[in-house]
Computed example of a mutant assay.
Amino acid sequence: MNVKDKYYQEVLRFWKDLTPNQRELVDHSIIKKHFNKGEAMRSSSDQCSGLFLIESGQVRAYIISENGKEITLYRLFDRDVCIFSASCIMKNISFDIFIETEKETTAYLIPTSIFDKLSKESMAVQVFANELMASRFSDVMWIMEQTLFMTLDKRLAIFLLEQSNIEESDTIKITHEKIANHLGSAREVITRMLKYFQEEGIISLSRGTIHIVNRKRLEQLTLY
């Protein structure tokens, strides 16, 4: 068994249900791709690359409003699967979603035509795709709930704690502009809120860096 086979078996839950011919088809058609930080994996609804399996790295899926504001829908990490990059095979779903790398990323790509063929032939693949779509839409609904019903200070506190967990550090290297893009806000608004957090002794700010000084106070902001 080679490394790729092992990877497929662990990430693609439907692998064990594929026939030998279907497994061979995937093995011969799958493509390993490398992306630099900030590179687009999918830039518009007109592009439909296929199903991405994230081997390593960090990926962000987001939408852009008519006035150019961005808001992050969800993020993907090692061993996650990006279903929206194959959205063109999903019937009656039409949307503009952008997918870019936040870190240097390595991913395997199952081309759209191959994944579409497997979906039509295998119920297990259909179930996998439907479950993945349901999970991603759950992520999107959580973001919509935050945007519609939570105050910005609470949303910002949630984001800083999540980012701290991702980086496994209380020191977060990120610009105010990037936070604004994640939260669908303006940079000036984020800057004012961060300065308020700093005045309250919750964080300290330096150029391109946020350090969480009082994690307990930050966590308390997420509860109200």
Score class of each variant (00 low, 15 high):
residue 175 T to E: 09
residue 52 F to Y: 15
residue 219 E to N: 10
residue 188 E to P: 03
residue 165 N to S: 10
residue 182 H to P: 01
residue 15 W to D: 11
residue 150 M to V: 01
residue 80 D to M: 07
residue 56 S to V: 02
residue 162 E to W: 08
residue 95 F to E: 12
residue 15 W to Q: 11
residue 121 E to P: 00
residue 208 G to M: 07
residue 113 S to A: 08
residue 179 I to C: 07
residue 166 I to R: 10
residue 208 G to H: 04
residue 62 Y to R: 11
residue 137 F to I: 14
residue 129 A to C: 12
residue 163 Q to V: 03
residue 131 E to R: 13
residue 218 L to E: 06
residue 87 S to L: 14
residue 67 N to R: 12
residue 129 A to Q: 09
residue 143 I to P: 01
residue 68 G to H: 10
residue 214 N to H: 14
residue 183 L to M: 13
residue 23 R to M: 13
residue 219 E to H: 09
residue 187 R to V: 04
residue 166 I to Y: 09
residue 85 S to R: 03
residue 136 R to F: 05
residue 125 V to E: 00
residue 163 Q to F: 03
residue 44 S to Y: 07
residue 26 V to W: 01
residue 37 K to V: 02
residue 7 Y to I: 15
residue 210 I to K: 01
residue 38 G to T: 06
residue 11 V to I: 15
residue 54 I to L: 05
residue 58 Q to R: 14
residue 193 M to L: 15
residue 159 F to R: 10
residue 45 S to N: 12
residue 140 V to Q: 02
residue 126 Q to H: 07
residue 210 I to C: 00
residue 156 L to S: 03
residue 93 I to S: 14
residue 105 T to M: 07
residue 98 F to P: 02
residue 140 V to G: 03
residue 215 R to W: 01
residue 104 E to A: 07
residue 10 E to H: 15
residue 170 D to R: 07
residue 215 R to H: 05
residue 114 I to H: 00
residue 214 N to F: 05
residue 39 E to I: 01
residue 113 S to H: 06
residue 14 F to M: 12
residue 170 D to K: 08
residue 194 L to A: 13
residue 12 L to G: 02
residue 131 E to Q: 13
residue 73 L to T: 00
residue 79 R to H: 11
residue 75 R to E: 11
residue 173 K to T: 07
residue 134 A to F: 11
residue 22 Q to Y: 03
residue 8 Y to L: 15
residue 164 S to M: 09
residue 51 L to Y: 02
residue 131 E to A: 09
residue 125 V to L: 02
residue 98 F to W: 09
residue 3 V to R: 15
residue 7 Y to W: 15
residue 109 L to F: 05
residue 98 F to V: 12
residue 82 C to Y: 05
residue 220 Q to N: 06
residue 147 T to D: 08
residue 121 E to K: 04
residue 196 Y to M: 14
residue 64 I to P: 00
residue 189 V to R: 13
residue 25 L to I: 00
residue 190 I to G: 04
